[in-house]
């Protein structure tokens, strides 16, 4: 048994993952986090700084980092890149005016070396709003099909109703687990 195998086995035992949640302001990052954790979502303020939640899901210990998306905070995003296993990019599907901004920010992130090994999950949030774009439209606008550097998946969801949040996170966990825990 090689050292690498031992290390992998150790990591397997811990089954711990670090997820980083980013996106433009008002995308619904904090709402997704709180909803996923079963907390009240009606009193959420715009995030000044960041939130961390640690939760157990399917036998994994998830450390989810939710960092504020205001323009003035985006330059601090890079402080959170280190040892990220999964990147959750949250999009406000109803905010058509800023989709181009959203695409630019995402493509900048994907060039980041420290996120090179991370799996990307895109949440097309706010699907409950009547004017929201479908997940296929978002996929098109964000040019996700051009991404060759990361494993990615887009899931249409609603943080308010909780629809599809589990689907998305489960996919992310499976992808990460396949990569870091069962490579032997």
């Amino acid at each position: 048994m090689g050292l690498l195998t031992i290390l992998k086995k150790m990591k397997h035992k811990e089954r711990e993952m670090r997820l980083l949640m980013l996106g433009l302001d008002n995308a619904g990052k904090t709402t997704i986090l709180k909803k996923f954790n079963g907390q009240d979502v009606s009193t959420i303020s715009p995030t000044l700084g960041f939130n961390i939640e640690t939760l157990e899901h399917r036998g994994f210990k998830l450390n989810i980092w939710d960092v504020g998306g205001q323009k003035s905070l985006r330059s601090y995003w890079r402080n959170y890149f280190e040892s990220t296993d999964g990147l959750v990019w949250v999009v406000d599907s109803a905010d058509r005016l800023r989709l181009e901004d959203c695409r630019k920010e995402l493509s900048t992130l994907l060039l980041e070396e420290r996120l090179a090994g991370a799996t990307l999950l895109v949440f097309a949030n706010k699907q409950d709003l009547p004017g929201s774009l479908s997940k296929d439209a978002i996929r098109e606008v964000l040019a996700l099909d051009d991404i060759k550097t990361h494993h990615w998946c887009i899931v249409g969801c609603s943080a308010v109703t909780g629809e599809n949040l589990l689907t998305g996170v489960d996919w992310l966990l499976d992808d990460i687990a396949a990569r870091i825990f069962t490579a032997d």
Partner: peptide, 23 residues
Amino acid sequence: TDKSASDVGGTVVVDAAISVYQC
């Protein structure tokens, strides 16, 4: 509508997007 526009392509979606703001 945006649903049908969605399969036309990203640009058109964004283009149409502004006009779809009926409100």
